[in-house]
Design a protein around this nucleic acid. Sequence first.
DNA 1: GGGTGTACATTTTTT
DNA 2: ATGTACACCC
Length: 883
Amino acid sequence: MSGFSDDMPFFDEPGARPPAASGSAGAPSGIAARAMAARQAQNAPPDYLSGLNPEQRQAVETTEGPVLVLAGAGTGKTRVLTTRIAHILATGRAFPSQILAVTFTNKAAREMKQRIAMLVPEAVEGMPWLGTFHSIGVKLLRRHAELAGLRSDFSILDTDDVIRLIKQLIQAEGLDDKRWTPRTFAQMIDGWKNKGLGPEEIPEGDARSFGNGRGRELYRAYQARLTTLNACDFGDLLLHPIRIFRAHHDILAEYHRRFRYILVDEYQDTNTAQYMWLRLLAQRPRASSIQPGEGRARDGAPGDVSPAPAEGQPPQAAVRPVSEDKPTQQINICCVGDDDQSIYGWRGAEVDNILRFEKDFPGATVIRLERNYRSTAHILGAAAHLIAHNEGRLGKTLFTDQPDPDDPKVNVHAAWDSDEEARAVGEEIEALQRRKHALNDIAILVRASFQMRSFEDRFIEIGLNYRVIGGPRFYERQEIRDAMAYLRVVANPGDDLAFERIVNVPKRGLGEAAIRQVHDTARALSVPMLQAAANLAESDELKPKPRAALREVAANFARWQDLLETTPHTELAETILEESGYIDMWKNDRAADAPTRLDNLKELIRSMEDYESLRAFLEHVALVMDADKNEDLDAVSLMTLHSAKGLEFETVFLPGWEEGLFPHQRALDEGGRSGLEEERRLAYVGLTRAKKNLHIWFVSNRRIHGLWQSTIPSRFLDELPEAHVEVNESGSSFGGYGNPYGASRFDNVGSPSGGYAKRGDQGNQAFSSTYATPGWQRARQNRTEATSRNWGTRSGHAVERIGYGEADSGYGAGRGSVKGRTIDGELVAKSVADAPSAFRIGDRVFHMKFGNGNVSAIDGNKLTIDFDRAGQKKVLDSFVTAA
DNA sequence: GGGTGTACATTTTTT
DNA sequence: ATGTACACCC
């Protein structure tokens, strides 16, 4: 139908054009010339190699055979990857189109393209196979769609579409969608697909665990529905090609001939499906059973392998033959990764893939990059000591060539609560700013996004520029998704999900009943809903009003589809949004954000200009996540630790190092030891983002889900080496309250005279010099604002009180009631039982921080207490005792 | 079909 | 505490 194939140069098309835009169709003039030059000048290494250290250079020059590059943080990973590609090209080992280079994110792919362009300018246009797993998957699937039961104009559904679809299926099965939530099932399917499992392959137990044992049927129905919709989800972008490769050896063989070199970025993040996909492509045709489930290795005729020059292959003369002395179809796969930075286990990544590499690819060369160009010796020392607490590593130790005795140690600070934490970080940043430190070179990396809020509040208050990275994405906004739904129906009339989304947006008087009717008709006739709507509009099965509405919708789409051929896509999009009444809908909306939404729609249309066709644009939006950010502004970056991977900053703040938050309680509860190790790797990633200054913070009180919790410092703090760490005792807070893992040097943080924090110490006097600190003033202010009573002149007493008056009984009793789960003797989980509270309304109670108060309401184990001094708070009953 | 009330969940995120 | 999603009622 659509003419999308223009922008996809498939190699086996007649007259396949190699490096198109370079104008070198046929003869690789530019590249070959370069290759010649390179070989003529063999004595002097090409200049792109000259800046590499010996390990990097080895990684670049070991082009043949399987290679694993273990690239620690800041060791020049991307540089190796891009130089390696440049090297392969410059030496004439392959054409750009014969290199498969996969990344996880579009950002990484883009960066790689840019950097290759700097090294080999003429090559990039011809690297059609550099991209994310998913974008390459789409490309493969568009080419062979019919083998997966799809048409090549299939839609790609995002998570939201998938959930809506599954909801329909669950309801169709007569299941309660409260008991069996679509979200849960969508996650299950995602998990199965990550493992490469289709409906028939999932374990019986999994199948039974959902929807009264109907999991397998539901999954099957889901896949059937996708086929009907001519759509696939993200998982299918990998799974369909895998199936096709397995079932059609001739097609796989084509790609075997095609891809001479395979490069994989962030290999530690690959999941099982991606692994299988890579194995299929990298496998030597003759290779026998290497992998369970991968047994059918034999395909392409073993003998024929040697460069059966397909169209567009470099003339043999110009190319150094692919290692004549080695067996044919050499596996030239190079995986780059860092097992210590594997932080995506929760979404299916298998660290094992990287740990197993040498077994998977016998004879592999393993190269370690440990020379770090980013961080100071203190930071590296801290990171190394921390990560050494993990088991099952391949083992690497980062080092730096340039230790500087003036480098600051890693700083650890304590704060009373998250507001004070934000306030103090804000002050530190302002101080840096006065010293001309660029804000762009400062980042705050949090474990969970709710932590960002206190920083945002504070930064707004003091007028500090900041940017949040990884927030709600542009294309996830309602108005964008609506607009996209219109476009999707035009591009793929079978996209019922999109149709349903907008059939009554703006309101056209089509209620649930009318839509159901369209749905049923579509099912009965096995046609898309759009078609069914057109039919219904001509029948008398509906009341006049909805009938007229449907007729108009159907006529509109018919007209738009005609325009698709003749009208530029941006213009078409404008027409659609105008004629559908969608623009007017927002113009008439009095909501405060309506103008913003209109702006977003304009921006959407503007961004379409960057794409050749409607379908190219739709694909971009389906696959690309990036929100455009304002790079010009000098601003502090605020993001989660996960989204910080791969970035670096001069100065990094890591707030929230408290048990339960970091490591996160849920990671511990659900992941046990390996969950803890992943959290530790996350900490490692955080530490290694910093070039020079690193500040870690923890607080003693955090409000989680609306109630106050006392917190204890993260065990990770205890895993930092003293030699590289400086505990900052500027003393604006009350630090830890004892650490269940034994004495911790952080127990005393924040106590000028020390010692109060030790259990049993009578440390009241310790606070005399502390209560007047800004943190306290602020804390007090908050309380005053909240309750405006009982908190004026007696604050001094209150401070003493709150500190440790009867702490032993209070704390001890509270803690003692919480049972913990342990792994190897380490406390890992402390789930609080939902036992009815032992307290009653009106009871006089004591809380270790807020002092005495009266219980005013009880909700399970959550108490609302009117504290004498601290005002009304909600706290867990395990944190108070009868007074 | 739209508006109001209640119930529930709330780590991390890419494609 | 706070937001969202759904159910129910007008």
